[in-house]
Design a protein around this nucleic acid. Structure first.
Lengths: 268, 268
DNA sequence: AACGGCGTTGTGTTTATCACAACAGTTTCC
DNA sequence: GGAAACTGTTGTGATAAACACAACGCCGTT
């Protein structure tokens, strides 16, 4: 009100100065790294255009990343690719077990509610790996083995993961050799697999009545963190018991996958 | 000389202003990420101490990393772990194929010189995977299959990788189940394996006369980039032919592994 | 209750970063 | 064949962004 306050020193400075304390230069470095999701190889100028940064800034960001081994400059083409430190960190992340610690309570809750065994599976090359397993109570139950790997085309849990991969990558991973058959229901040709994937993408859930292990019905939902497929959560049980509660299982497994994704995305 | 220049504004500014254009804030963010190699979980204060940074700086770095999914804050303990973006990047790196492109010429040169097939293997969970293979010329030769995986304890190439893993991690990966036997020479107990690893560490090379595939002799050397084990390069050939040139093979494979490591570290 | 630990937030100072420009090599395309 | 257009890299002043310090609120222990 007073006319005297001629120059309010900083009219908006009481509010948080920056976007909640995010460091611009560091954030830009991370943006550069994440750009390699879309393209395996970047030149300085084209990356600068993509991220709307100055050439010089991009060049210095890449040089900084290169010095720590996060990117690698091809001495011939002067283009950059992801470097060795990325793999090193990934191993550390796996070893650290964030995923396991976060997923276990979610699976336990899911298992309790549906009364069947639940598993978190993660992609592992051209296969998927059982990362966390929670067995149901009671004598008759499926028992997941942590660390076991199953080829990508085997079972609902695999469909719920690889349906959300870039499909050209899936084809590359599966290769040219014929796909292994586990019983008369296994999907062994690419066309059937592609149709199944389309259905899974549309419905957000994959259901298998014995495609891999003939004795069990599986209901699997994909789990996304930061819009990236991380793995799938699956409910597994004997056919007869599962038959009466497939609808419930679909709802619950979708919810659990969503919940885990939120937790892993930091919004939980 | 003049008494007047009280404050020389910048006494060395003609020289490159900073350490060759490395951005401090970005570099610090990368240091934070790499700290998770040594410990899976960090609090703000202890990480600040470790890196000799201010608490507030560390906190803002972690917040920046968290917003992009590179780290994840446990809402309970307020401690940070590596996040989902690390895995996403690792998949992109694998898909991108930097390793393959870099390794192929090195392997080709090695194969030409020794006159046998050569393979680059990379760790893949509790196994190792054939990432790049270059066959020798001639009718009698070992032919490596890209994508094939072999359990960690099978063959020289595995020893040359897992000897340089933290040994407690190797034990965890191998698990409690008995190790698969491929022939009478396969190393199937942990004690023998541990002794072999010690020898491999001391000599910088692993030699197998048919431990996995009974028909071939393998000479393998570990490959490091930025002081981290990346994989191993192996020379494989029939026993009789290899017998006459094991010493040469040891020298050559060591050199090739060193060369590849240098290339991947950006110093090539 | 007082302490010592934590993670978080505010703020003036200053310094690291930005944006623009200029440079030297390559490739491209008349 | 030559110049135009493209790379990636480096220099530099202005300025905004990051730093370092301090204060705060919170929790568990003493």
């Amino acid at each position: 009100m007073g006319v005297e306050d001629v120059g309010v020193p900083n009219a908006g400075t009481t509010a948080p100065r920056r976007d909640s304390g995010v460091l611009q230069t560091a954030d830009r470095a991370l943006q550069v790294l994440l750009a390699f999701r879309d393209r395996p190889e970047w030149g300085v100028t084209e990356l600068a255009r993509e991220l709307a940064l100055d050439k010089s800034v991009t060049q210095r960001l890449l040089a900084t990343l290169a010095r720590r081994g996060f990117v690698l400059a091809d001495p011939e083409t002067r283009r950059y690719r992801l470097g060795a430190s990325v793999g090193v960190l990934a191993r550390a992340a796996e070893r650290g077990g964030t995923l396991e610690a976060t997923a276990r309570p979610v699976l336990a809750e899911l298992s309790r509610r549906i009364g069947e065994s639940t598993i978190l599976n993660v992609p592992h090359g051209a296969a998927y790996r059982c990362a966390v397993a929670v067995d149901a109570d009671g004598p008759v139950r499926y028992s997941g083995t942590v660390g076991a790997t199953i080829p990508a085309h085997g079972g609902a849990a695999g469909h719920a993961i690889f349906a959300f991969y870039p499909q050209d990558e899936v084809r590359r991973l599966l290769g040219d050799a014929p796909l292994a058959r586990y019983n008369e229901l296994t999907l062994t040709d690419w066309d059937t697999l592609a149709r199944t994937y389309a259905k899974v993408r549309a419905e957000g859930v994959a259901i298998s009545h014995g495609e891999y292990d003939a004795n069990v019905t599986s209901v699997a939902a994909p789990c996304f963190a930061l819009d990236q497929i991380i793995g799938s959560i699956v409910i597994i049980g004997p056919h007869d018991r599962m038959a009466t509660k497939v609808d419930t299982a679909v709802d619950l497994v979708r919810g659990a996958a969503q919940r885990l994704g939120d937790l892993l995305s930091g919004s939980g």
